[in-house]
């Protein structure tokens, strides 16, 4: 067996890979700008394409069979065992969009409306990578529903973090500014089968964005089974979208809303228990009725609840989840 380190070829250049180095790290060390955010194989911002060579299977985890067949892979978790030639997906994979409106609501949430240059084929609950004109990339989940809101209209709910690179920029952006999108990505969406089965949607903070999309999509698609939307924030006054949700529930008998906050304060209709406690109390009774669970938001909640529900007897195939991993700074030699 050869012990020479594998090489990476990109845009006519040959780069010797250091032991354990990812394709993303190697390219960044060369000064190649690759969009990236979570750097943990989840957000898909850094998707690239293999031209030749073999891809480690973990670098294609979470990609659709079609994308795998096209040689798409995630550069941030790709540590090639042998020589590999890669290419960026190119501008063809990006869609331009205009920021139509940014409206601030409670909980420091920005309701962002984008209009894409051409219709985007997506399912509510999937996520896109939003690219700022300077290339900064962050994934955001889609709250809109094409059939209800129009095929070129995208709604995002972005939590404004003070000092946040993307969310801070969005908080002050002029309407009419052009951005780019990649995607859609992910498998956290409603499929119109078994319309009588119960659905449980659990989300913290802006984890509500994909769940709002999924709930409206399921209801518009004629879902008959009970839908429970369990959403929460740390403080009751940070809960947002409450009016829209109340309207939706008034229109649909099979939609039940449960709001949760650890600091309930003066609020009425807010459960003071943690989301996972409420979810674990309600879900198991529905396992035998084909319950499907959707989990979005804080990674600790999403990953913890996913595991707890699995241990309580839910099949992993009935749990759809997107953990909102924060973006991670570039590491290794490229950051110095």
């Amino acid at each position: 067996m050869s012990h020479a380190s594998p090489t990476l070829r990109f845009a006519g250049e040959t780069i010797a890979l250091e032991r354990g180095q990812t394709v993303l790290e190697a390219l960044e060390a060369r000064g190649v700008a690759v969009p990236s955010s979570c750097r943990a194989g989840a957000c898909q911002s850094c998707t690239m394409r293999a031209v030749s060579g073999e891809l480690p299977s973990e670098s294609q985890a979470g990609l659709s069979p079609a994308k795998r067949a096209l040689g798409h892979f995630l550069a941030c978790v790709c540590r090639p065992a042998g020589d590999l030639e890669v290419a960026s997906l190119g501008d063809a994979a990006e869609l331009s969009a205009t920021i139509v409106e940014v409206r601030r609501t409670s909980g420091a949430v920005l309701l962002v409306r984008l209009r894409t240059a051409s219709p985007l084929d997506y399912r509510p609950g999937q996520f896109i990578t939003l690219l700022r004109p300077d290339g900064l990339a962050r994934p955001y989940s889609i709250a809109s529903v094409p059939a209800l809101d129009g095929p070129s209209e995208l709604h995002l709910h972005v939590r404004h973090y003070p000092g946040g690179a993307m969310s801070g920029w969005l908080a002050g952006v002029r309407e009419g500014v052009e951005v780019s999108l990649r995607g859609p990505f992910g498998e956290c969406f409603y499929v119109a089968e078994d319309r009588d089965a119960p659905l449980l949607l659990v989300g913290s903070g802006t984890g509500l964005a994909p769940l709002y999309g999924i709930a409206r999509d399921a209801l518009a698609g004629g879902h008959r089974g009970p839908i429970t939307l369990l959403y929460g924030a740390r403080r009751a006054e940070d809960l947002y979208l409450r009016e829209e949700l109340a309207l939706l529930a008034a229109e649909h008998d099979n939609l039940e809303l449960i709001a949760s906050a650890l600091e309930v304060g003066e609020a009425v209709d807010v459960d003071g228990r943690a989301l996972d406690v409420i979810a674990l109390e309600r879900a198991p009774a529905d396992f035998s009725r084909g319950l499907r669970v959707f989990l979005c938001g804080a990674p600790a909640l999403v990953n913890g609840l996913r595991r707890q529900l699995f241990m309580a007897g839910a099949s992993m195939r009935s749990i759809f989840a997107d953990a909102f991993l924060p973006s991670a700074p570039a590491t290794g030699p490229s950051s110095v």
């Binding site: 973990e58 985890a61 979470g62 996913r306 595991r307 992993m316």
Partner: peptide, 8 residues
């Protein structure tokens, strides 16, 4: 490991 899919 948090990567339950990978583990499975």
């Amino acid at each position: 490991d948090v990567d339950m899919d990978g583990q499975m």
